[in-house]
Nucleic acid binder design. Structure first.
Lengths: 207, 207
DNA sequence: GTCTATATACAGATAGAC
DNA sequence: GTCTATCTGTATATAGAC
């Protein structure tokens, strides 16, 4: 792996963390450069603008999400897949209490601005809803109902993440997650056990 | 009403709109001054800092919300009150598609920063959840269950608002609102009609 | 490819005449 | 109370030596 990709990757990683913790706008290129251990002026060798770093960050996250969904296909029961996704959201409840949802935060902040970055952020949620809808369809639910369920599910996760951040209370996330799982079971009509895949394995694959 | 309160009110109103449309940080004092028709330097006669304007904006909204809840007490059936609140959220679905939820946006943006403004924004959602919980209790639901329902309800509204913004699709808000009302009916055990109060009256009172 | 120095723009905030 | 001019800090972005 060349030096080029190495430094570039470090910058993306630093930007990823800072954008999540502080938001996209409040994060400065100086912040990113410092965290990545790269002099400020050198950043522009790898990225023409700040927006370009944002694009790279979101693209990377998009790939990770879709890779995670591929990983979840190893689970046979689509309902269990959905549950695994729901639980992956709270792999770190304390982080949600501090910084909220990495995806929801982006969509909220960038959604008002419009532009390419907003569209890219929207694609993240779009992919999640689409995948979730597919799982409901695989359970024998009609296309129309599946889409509504998927929208409801992602909506509830996002709302729960926002409340967890707002009240800085991780237990909101853990309790609401259980409520959402109960809802899932009522939708599919029977109990939905946790995935058999090792938790560590899922956490590692989680985006 | 003195000139002082007049200009001060204009500044708050301008800040309110701009903070909602652009977010708190991206909105500049120059923006606010211009929209209010006040020279930039004069802003500091009314507010010592930008944060002070933010505090005034959130305080005003908090008062409006609580005044709205008082207004809703005119409705006899608590379940109908809750429905009226749910529907008040989408009095302007197009605005949600453009700018999201005025309260959720603040909590998301300020929640990461911490500080007094974040606490004040959190109080908005806190008041809403508290009021909603009281209505469920008035329906004969246990305190514990009522609190969970209130959290679920506000969570779903917030998530729905975020998705509406993200995909810039007002129909997400209208459709999900119906889903939430269906959920409300399943919780209370029977149909919940829309409020008898004139829609205009409610819309006017809405925060 | 790397890094220092700096240009440029614009934000919040202040000074002081009126 | 009001408004113009300006200070000060800091952000993105560039120039150019190495």
């Amino acid at each position: 792996m060349s030096r080029r990709t190495d430094k570039r990757a470090k910058l993306i990683r630093a930007a990823e963390d800072l954008n999540y913790q502080q938001g996209f706008r409040p994060t400065t290129l100086a912040d990113i450069a410092q965290d990545a251990g790269v002099p400020l002026g050198n950043v522009y060798y790898y990225f023409k603008t700040k927006e370009d770093i944002g694009k790279a960050v979101i693209s990377k996250r998009d790939e990770e999400i879709n890779a995670f969904f591929v990983k979840l296909e190893e689970i046979i029961d689509p309902a269990v897949r959905i549950r695994a996704y729901i639980e992956s959201n709270i792999s770190d409840p304390e982080a949600i209490a501090r910084y909220g949802c990495p995806i929801g935060g982006l969509c909220q902040e960038l959604g008002k601005e419009g532009g390419i970055l907003a569209d890219q952020a929207a694609k993240l949620l779009h992919d999640i809803i689409k995948w979730t809808g597919k799982q409901f369809v695989a359970l024998g639910i009609s296309q129309e109902a599946a889409e509504e369920y998927a929208l409801s599910l992602v909506s509830r996760i996002q709302g729960m993440n926002l409340l967890t951040l707002t009240f800085k209370d991780p237990s909101i996330a853990t309790r609401q997650t259980q409520t959402i799982i109960n809802w899932l079971e009522s939708v599919v009509g029977n109990k939905v056990p946790a995935a058999q895949l090792a938790k560590e394995e899922l956490a590692e694959a989680a985006y």
